[in-house]
Nucleic acid binder design. Structure first.
Lengths: 209, 209
DNA sequence: CTGTAACTTGAATATTGACTCAGGTTTCGA
DNA sequence: TCGAAACCTGAGTCAATATTCAAGTTACAG
């Protein structure tokens, strides 16, 4: 559970090596993102990176291993990006809105990597599971804390966490991966309103009957 | 948009042929469901079906074609199952709860096929897109109608539709595909409560401040 | 019964692409 | 400057498997 690099005896030892590794990682992200895991080829990756085929195996043990590395990377990047955009001291409902907004923007800027995360479900299921379990656990905790403070109604934290993650993921897929037609702010606002008040006509100053 | 079989000159013409086709479809669902598209092999399918390798190509043009056939099939089955469990005359919020409940149950009974739908995103993106677009369109329409009747607050129907689908999908994944620990009813109830009232502590008779 | 269309069979073909390896080239500390 | 460690190269190996096909077998209309 630490933060090791995926342990290999393959870490680069010189500047040149570091540069090459980085080129390969970027190339792999592009190749996997564009063509999907199985269509992607190692030779495609090395061509993009401007390296020879064999060089790949200087830094990675297998095709699957790079893929996993990219999934883990994406987890860190996502959490980091969201954390940066969501101040620690706002209430939960505001945090939800800002978080979703940040998430959609992030996906838009990293479509390739995001596609990789989604495909991980079928290529490296445990990495995928882990990716979302970490999110779900954090989410569940945040909801429970917010409930204690009276910022939200308590109960069903786990189910809510998964439901909210599902919302984010699908809104991300629809409004970031497939099309960026609507501003992230707008989509996030609509979702936040749903999350906050639900669909009930009685909510808010809601009228009669 | 009709209900054609996936047009082939390959439809069976005798009873024996029909039986074989069915065996192959069932075997394909199992093989793809268990091993995923790329790990699955035609010979695996024909072995499960108790048929010779070449027989497969009597009924299908390619591996991808069976896969697509299964995705389409799943769309029909899902909609049908949900429609059966959700009476036409209940209000929207009740329909949401019953629909989600039916969906989770359905996924539990068809894990294989459901996995196939999810994987379609990477194998047959257009089939996948179509699967969800049909859902989203129907959903958007239902929400708009409910809004007109005053059953829910109006606005943002499309975003809401995708958000709600995302909820269902992730709850299905977590509580049906990955584990069936909690009863579908319970999960559906928790989600329905979220959808209806949101997280706001002010909703319902909800207390002060 | 009989002929033929429908169906079945599984060995053979063809392609693809992950991974290896033996032989260079570059880097960098001493 | 020198040499060993690090790094790079890309042709070749090898296994996997989607798809084809020519030779049977079965169903069934007439």
């Amino acid at each position: 559970m630490g933060g090791d690099e995926t342990a290999t005896s393959k870490a680069p030892r010189t500047e040149r090596g570091k540069r090459t590794l980085r080129k390969l990682l970027d190339a792999a992200a592009a190749e996997f993102g564009e063509r999907g895991y199985h269509e992607a080829s190692i030779s495609g990756i090395t061509q993009r990176a401007g390296a020879a085929l064999g060089t790949f195996y200087t830094y990675f043990d297998s095709k699957e291993q790079v893929f996993r590395a990219l999934v883990d990377d994406m987890g860190h990047l996502t959490r980091q990006h969201i954390a940066e955009r969501v101040p620690g001291n706002v209430d939960r409902l505001t945090a939800e809105r800002l978080g979703l907004e940040a998430f959609i923007e992030f996906v838009r800027e990293h479509k390739d990597l995001y596609r990789i995360v989604m495909e991980a479900q079928f290529v490296a299921e445990d990495a995928y599971l882990n990716y979302y379990k970490v999110f779900a656990a954090a989410y569940t905790r945040n909801l429970a804390q917010a409930a204690e403070k009276g910022e939200i109604r308590p109960g069903h934290e786990e189910e809510r966490a998964w439901a909210l993650i599902g919302m984010s993921v699908f809104l991300g897929m629809r409004y970031a991966v497939w099309s960026s037609d609507k501003p992230a702010k707008e989509v996030a606002a609509a979702a936040a309103e749903l999350i906050t008040f639900g669909l009930s006509p009685l909510a808010r100053g809601g009228g009669g009957n």
